[in-house]
């Protein structure tokens, strides 16, 4: 315990790798990430000509209006992570085959890796960052995952939690089997499905208590 305290005192206070990355993106210093992801000749000029879509757009993300410059062929996961700094949404397979990138569009789950940002213009996007209430109270699903210790490595967790949240909000009193069906579009490579389903059942209880 003391060792941990000492190590923490040496570095900047409460500064994690995650916060550092988010800080870099928020500060607009996305040059390195952009030059890696959006490289290639003609990339920056493509999409402006010949009557295609307008690149500058306003997205509604977690209740906020965000102005952003989006390439015509850019996926929503790319925009969320690398333009808006919302790195809670994970990219697993980038092929609609794992579910780690699940977000809500108008309250319905979608794989953000497999839709274009231009397809969601004017629609309500909700990511894992938008689940807790403004006063910091966790969403019942987040609380349930905390209570049940729902995940091992938890890389898949944001996707699972988004699928769970969309489901329990619409289906009070759902059974474990129904939860499993609702979560059948998400994979966990740790194979932690039992605890994930325990969390889902707990989330249904918490949701009912809150209602």
């Amino acid at each position: 315990m003391t060792e941990v305290e000492i190590i923490r005192d040496r570095g900047p206070r409460n500064y994690s790798r995650r916060k550092f990355i988010k800080g870099v993106i928020a500060a607009g210093a996305t040059v390195s990430a952009s030059s890696y992801l959006f490289r290639g000749p003609g990339v920056l000029t493509a999409g402006q000509a010949r009557g295609g879509v307008e690149r500058l757009m306003t997205l509604t993300v977690n209740g906020q209006q965000r102005r952003v410059d989006v390439l015509p062929y850019e996926t929503l996961a790319m925009t969320l992570r690398y333009k808006l700094g919302l790195t809670g949404t994970k990219l697993g397979c980038d092929r609609a085959e794992c579910g780690a990138c699940t977000v809500h569009i108008d309250g319905v789950t979608h794989y953000s890796c497999s839709m274009l940002t231009h397809q969601v213009r004017g629609r309500e996007i909700r990511t894992i960052e938008g689940l807790e209430s403004p006063d910091g109270e966790l969403h019942p699903v987040q609380q349930a995952v905390m209570d049940e210790g729902g995940f091992q490595c938890a890389f898949c967790a944001p996707g699972f939690i988004m699928s769970m949240a969309a489901f329990v909000e619409d289906n009070p009193g759902a059974s474990r089997a129904q939860c499993a069906q609702a979560l059948s579009g998400n994979l966990c490579r740790c194979g932690d499905y039992n605890k994930i389903l325990d969390s889902a059942e707990r989330a249904v209880e918490l949701m009912d208590q809150r209602a």
């Binding site: 992801l37 999409g47 850019e74």
Partner: peptide, 14 residues
Amino acid sequence: VIRDMIPPCELFQP
């Protein structure tokens, strides 16, 4: 090989 980005092309939304 995993490739992240869709190569440049036009998008139309008629």
